[in-house]
Design a protein around this nucleic acid. Structure first.
Lengths: 132, 132
DNA sequence: CAGCAACTCTACCCTAACGTTAGAGTAGAG
DNA sequence: CTCTACTCTAACGTTAGGGTAGAGTTGCTG
């Protein structure tokens, strides 16, 4: 399918999808004779995975690296044991970083809640009818 | 106090603090004869407020705008009633945006937790004997 | 077939919020 | 005065795209 439909289905912008190709994150499986990008269901699935990863704050490079590792683990058949272990180690590293990111998000959320509460308190204190 | 101590206390980088001056967000109250930035406790407090605002995803311009509004509300004495109401309205708008952003952060956190769990599950499933 | 609307292409410049040097000056203890 | 730690300005780099221009492509319709 063409890029427009992909954008609609993934809720990503055309620019974003093209950018993901520029950085090698999701390269369309084919091009039309005229040069239009053509995506498969598989490509779309990959974009969806990326969309779910975005909140974790990984860079595009890191996502590419991680996707590459899991892809190769899934195409497991011909992998040597130590190659497999190396890939798993990479995934482990990302898993740990993800856990750290989750912690950061928790801190951020509590700071944000705190700030929102402060603002609300100020508004209540300064409310037109209830000036103390 | 000098910028280094401010950085230590706020956990912001020197560059960030200088950047906040460049954009007029927090201008140091004084400079030494030699040109070093000198910050007061008040300046530090302002930086702390900003740090809490950061997760809310406001731009520096918006933060400056909001801080400006609350500052003027705090120096309340000479404010006309409609000017005061206009300022409060501005704060109200930001408070609503903050509340929305808090919601988004909650969603992001739960997605992040979810993804981290998925990665962990994969590792456990693929673990040779390395699982402790 | 030509015409047309809708879609897509590449190329390039722009942005926010800093990071990262480089090279030079300042503070203040000894 | 010297030394070390700290700080200064200036300016280019980065990330993840946004926006625009000008040109080409697709597929339908008459």
């Amino acid at each position: 399918m063409q890029i427009g439909e992909v954008a609609a289905r993934t809720e990503l912008s055309l620019r974003t999808i093209r950018h993901y190709e520029e950085t090698g994150l999701v390269v369309p499986s084919a091009r039309s004779r005229g040069g239009f990008r053509l995506y498969t269901e598989n490509d779309v699935a990959r974009l969806m995975v990326i969309r779910r990863m975005k909140p974790l704050g990984f860079t595009l490079d890191q996502m590419r690296d991680l996707l590459d590792a899991t892809d190769r683990l899934d195409a497991d058949a011909t992998l040597g044991a130590n190659e497999r272990e190396a890939l798993l180690e990479r995934v482990r590293t990302y898993q740990q970083e993800a856990a750290e990111q989750v912690e950061k998000l928790r801190v951020q959320l509590s700071r944000a809640e705190d700030f929102e509460g402060t603002l609300r308190a100020r508004l209540e204190r300064n409310a037109p009818a209830a000036r103390a």
